[in-house]
């Protein structure tokens, strides 16, 4: 099985966090797995890890609707970090609003990170795609 170094899940819904982990467990292995329940604790946690160890996740699963700091506000802060690596950011939401999809595309143009808009629920085929690229 392929091993991915570091994976991060940012979602306030424990069921989604459980689901993502479960699907990933079937297709890849990982060295590190972190999860945050809102954008604020995620940006704080990731920034601190990056500054202290220079490490960043390879794949991020990012929910949009979250308390305190939502997915968009997280993205705004995250792309400002001086990370040279291309991080695969999957904007995962139950929203099928085209406005949200457009917003994800706009963010993709503003950064070297790979930003992909994905709808919930995530299926195993999609996950294989995500992990293959990483």
């Amino acid at each position: 099985m392929k091993t991915i170094n570091s994976i991060c899940i940012i979602d306030d819904d424990p069921i989604t966090v459980f689901g993502v982990k479960k699907i990933l467990g079937k297709i890849v292995e990982w060295n590190e797995m972190s999860s945050y329940a809102d954008g604020k604790s995620a940006i704080d946690g990731l920034t601190s890890v990056f500054i202290n160890n220079g490490k960043t996740p390879d794949i991020i699963f990012l929910d949009i609707n979250m308390p305190i700091m939502d997915g968009w506000q997280f993205l705004e802060e995250f792309i400002k970090l001086p990370i040279t690596k291309k991080v695969q950011i999957n904007v995962v939401t139950s929203s099928i609003d085209p406005v949200d999809q457009k917003k994800a595309e706009d963010f993709a143009l503003m950064t070297h990170h790979i930003i992909t808009f994905r709808n919930k629920p995530l299926r195993i085929e999609e996950m294989k795609e995500v992990t293959k690229a990483a």
Partner: peptide, 17 residues
């Protein structure tokens, strides 16, 4: 739409599992 859909997405995912 968001709330109902997020619940249905969870149902769908959990049932699949």
């Amino acid at each position: 739409s968001h709330n109902l859909r997020s619940h249905s997405a969870n149902f769908s995912m959990l049932l699949d599992f």
